[in-house]
Nucleic acid binder design. Structure first.
Lengths: 219, 219
DNA sequence: GGGATATGTGAAGTATAGTTCACATGCTGT
DNA sequence: ACAGCATGTGAACTATACTTCACATATCCC
């Protein structure tokens, strides 16, 4: 099942969450769970989900915070909010912040299922998603240091943090950490288990574009 | 004389400035003059100079302000500072801000001439200039609204401010003014006497690159 | 002349990006 | 065990980009 859709269920209510997880996985989704806002953010940023089912009401880091964070770091991930009561105001706010849809507790599984499949369907024709990706990529390329990092990684194939830092002749390594993180979030570079950074396919593409722009500008 | 180098002389001392203008134009440069910081900024932003000879000490908008402004709006223009006294501190500050060189009053014309030719010579091999241009272009493309404007201008060939504003469905036209100004400063668009905006050659190139990036990203 | 429309400026505010520093943690060699 | 280097986090700060609003000026046309 290569193209099984990955869903992250975020709810502090253990029983509801586990029930939901079991039902949805039986219906053909690959499920992961998080019982708090913190856990949700951690899982969502280290992995790639198609949909995040997000409870709005949670102690600590609330659903709205998770939504905000998610739309920043993984703009292409679709979020469906779950509201405990039919608090339309919150739902509207969530939609404005980029949530794809919402359902109110209590809900019928079939209803949720339909919503999920509709959101997945819509995301196939999502033009704004492409635009967001473009935004992300371009804003990565705007920065001189990040362009240098991309060039370095293209030449050296793979580099560690301190190797990169020395190659750039930058004193403060945390500055490089910052830009490496940006590049990783844009999907232009990746990091292996040995902590070494290398270009992704998209990163190579971006470098190509840089070269084209450079040559166009000099003409 | 198509490739005659254009120099803008900025000095509030009329006699010195006019003398300089005459001597330098006899030596084969195309000369324009400005007697104040304001005038300098206006002329420099509406025209394209290879070198700006800039007096540091001027009433009102000082030379250092002009330098700052110039390096922002026309990063590729070379600036040679003229310091009334050999105030090394100011000169050092100017160099840090991107001035190419400086000479101290009083100076020998031959000395200035040599400096000018050396700066021109250096600018031919200027890698950072290309980088600055790239920076400018890329940061223009980062913004969604500006990308939309570029696409619009590509389709419509030429548009006025309010036409653009309406096409983008933006309420506040000053927002569009802002982005149009950015694009004009990056050299991606230009404006004719009738106030209509259109893409420059560089603007068309940038659009090509956008299309490439978009198609790369969707694959 | 005066109301409607177009083109802009400048100051003030908000938002986002980038920098810096103090500190945490983990590994490696002796 | 502990010195030394690598990898990274988080908070505070600065800088830059973007937005908004109040206002200015010019033109058109009735």
């Amino acid at each position: 099942m290569v193209d099984m859709n990955k869903i992250l269920i975020v709810d502090d209510d253990d029983e509801l969450r586990e029930n939901l997880a079991e039902i949805l996985s039986r219906r053909g989704f690959h499920i992961d769970e998080a019982s708090s806002g913190e856990e949700a953010i951690k899982k969502a940023s280290s992995d790639q989900f198609d949909i995040v089912l997000l409870d709005l009401m949670m102690p600590g880091v609330g659903g709205m915070d998770v939504l905000t964070e998610l739309k920043k770091s993984k703009p292409r991930t679709k979020v469906i909010m779950i509201t405990a009561f039919a608090t339309i105001d919150n739902a509207v706010e969530a939609i404005k912040k980029g949530a794809s849809d919402y359902i109110s507790k209590p809900f019928q599984i079939d209803n949720l299922d339909v919503t999920i499949r509709r959101v997945l369907e819509e995301s196939k024709f999502d033009i704004s998603a492409k635009n967001l990706g473009l935004d992300h990529t371009l804003s990565s390329l705007t920065n001189y240091i990040r362009r240098e990092i991309i060039k370095l990684l293209h030449i050296n194939k793979s580099l560690h943090l301190m190797e990169t830092t020395r190659a750039l002749e930058i004193e403060d390594h945390t500055k490089v950490v910052f830009h490496l993180k940006m590049l990783k979030e844009s999907g232009l570079i990746k990091q292996d288990k040995e902590k070494a950074y290398s270009l992704t396919k998209e990163g190579e593409n971006a470098l190509d574009c840089l070269k084209i722009l450079e040559s166009h500008l000099s003409s």
